[in-house]
Computed example of a mutant assay.
Amino acid sequence: MMNKNELRKEIRNRKRQFTPEQLRELSQPIIDKLRNHPKLQAAKTIMLYHSMPDEVYTHDFVTEMVEAGKEVLLPVVISETEMEIRKYTGLQDMAISSYGILEPVGEVFTDYQSIEFIAVPGMSFDSHRNRLGRGKGYYDRFLAQVPSAYTLGICFDFQKLDTIPADVYDKRVDEVI
Rank of each mutant, 00 (worst) to 15 (best):
Y57K: 12
Y57I: 13
Y57E: 15
H59P: 13
H59R: 12
F61K: 05
F61P: 06
V62L: 01
V62C: 13
T63P: 00
M65G: 02
M65W: 00
M65S: 03
V66F: 01
A68K: 01
G69H: 00
E71K: 14
V72G: 02
P75R: 12
P75C: 09
V76P: 09
V76M: 03
V77W: 08
V77M: 03
I78A: 01
S79K: 10
E80D: 14
E80C: 10
T81A: 06
T81K: 12
E82A: 10
M83S: 06
M83L: 14
E84I: 15
I85M: 10
R86P: 11
R86D: 11
K87G: 03
Y88V: 13
Y88W: 14
T89Q: 12
G90Q: 11
L91R: 11
L91G: 10
L91P: 08
D93I: 14
M94E: 09
A95Q: 15
I96D: 09
S98M: 14
S98P: 10
G100H: 11
G100D: 13
I101V: 15
I101P: 09
I101D: 06
L102I: 13
E103T: 14
E103V: 15
P104F: 02
G106Q: 15
G106H: 14
G106I: 15
E107D: 14
E107P: 07
E107L: 12
V108I: 15
V108N: 11
V108Y: 11
T110G: 13
T110D: 15
Y112K: 14
Y112M: 09
Q113G: 11
S114K: 12
I115G: 06
I115K: 04
F117A: 07
I118P: 08
V120G: 01
V120Y: 03
G122H: 09
G122R: 03
S124E: 10
S124M: 06
F125T: 04
D126I: 00
H128Y: 12
R129T: 06
N130P: 04
N130W: 02
N130E: 07
R131T: 05
R134C: 06
R134V: 08
G135M: 06
K136F: 04
D140W: 03
R141I: 07
R141E: 04
L143H: 04
L143Q: 05
L143Y: 04
A144Q: 08
A144G: 05
Q145F: 07
Q145Y: 08
V146N: 02
V146L: 01
A149M: 07
A149V: 09
Y150W: 06
Y150C: 02
L152K: 05
L152H: 04
C155Y: 03
D157H: 09
F158P: 00
K160V: 09
K160H: 08
L161V: 01
L161Q: 05
D162T: 01
D162P: 03
I164Y: 00
I164V: 01
I164D: 00
P165L: 06
P165G: 04
P165D: 04
V168D: 08
Y169H: 09
D170V: 06
D170I: 06
K171P: 03
R172P: 08
V173H: 01
D174A: 02
D174S: 07
E175C: 04
E175H: 05
E175S: 02
V176Q: 03
V176T: 07
V176G: 03
